[in-house]
Amino acid sequence: MSILINKDTKLIVQGITGRDGGFHTMKMKEYGTSIVAGVSPGKGGREIDGIPIFNTVEQAVKETAANASVIFVPAPFAADAILEASCAGVGLVVTITEGVPVLDIIKVSPVAKRNGTKLIGPNCPGLITPGESLIGILPGNIFKKGNIGLISRSGTLTYEVVNMLTKNGLGQTTCVGIGGDPVAGLYFLELLEMFENDPDTDAVVLIGEIGGDAEEQAAKFIKEKMTKPVVAFIAGQTAPTGKRMGHAGAIISSGSGTAEEKIKALYQANVPVAKEPLEIPGLLKKKLGL
């Protein structure tokens, strides 16, 4: 088992004819993801590497029974692409695009909710269930099937951590990059709950960073609702106040959203917080009694 995606996930790529969309479509396909369609308005009827292209998501879903979509379209058009997929009944929409206006995501969110669509991102690396399905831009080669769930606000930092997990024999059920924007789709709470309910996940790694109070909420949830161990890492302890640290959501505003507050909340929920990424495998093994 896993969460959100598995070998039965049938994926549409929106923006498949763009540079990034095209490149990562090939990478995902190489990994073994079942890509059933691409969508690119005006290019319907063509094929790219055996993948049929449609003009609309609705047509693509009708023809292929796709149940997930990944979005590579440029930021000004990303919200429309998300809505198109959601309104066509796609259950999971993963937005890789960076720089999407926050008010666009705020508008899209209630529509997705009404349609029963789960959103991930924007500005995220995607997610992977190792050995089954990869959606997004994650480097598939560093992941390995196993029993650890991972949720992260970051991209490269996630790869760094996963690489260490894999090298230490700690494979993963599903790893989800939730993205670096202030307003985003699925977040810590929803995903922690999914991992808690996934019989194959035995422990969860949570990678947070400065900005907002999602880690504090996660800590509360872990304390009250979770039976499985969680190990955390928080980036940005040395970040100055009032500066966006690359990610739009990684900002300490007027003294709130600091790493210290988050680490404190996690400790209080009995979640060990690694001082550096290198400590994560050891902390996990200790929690799992390995």
Binding site: T156, E209, Q237, P277
Partner: peptide, 28 residues
């Protein structure tokens, strides 16, 4: 994506989360 700080060890990293972590490691 660049933000100047007050220290003396410059760093160049690929990825925002890893870049923040690199700063933290220098401090650590």
């Amino acid at each position: 994506s660049y933000i100047k700080l007050d220290g003396n060890i410059g760093c160049m990293v690929n990825g925002a989360g890893l870049a923040m972590t690199t700063m933290d490691m220098i401090k650590l």
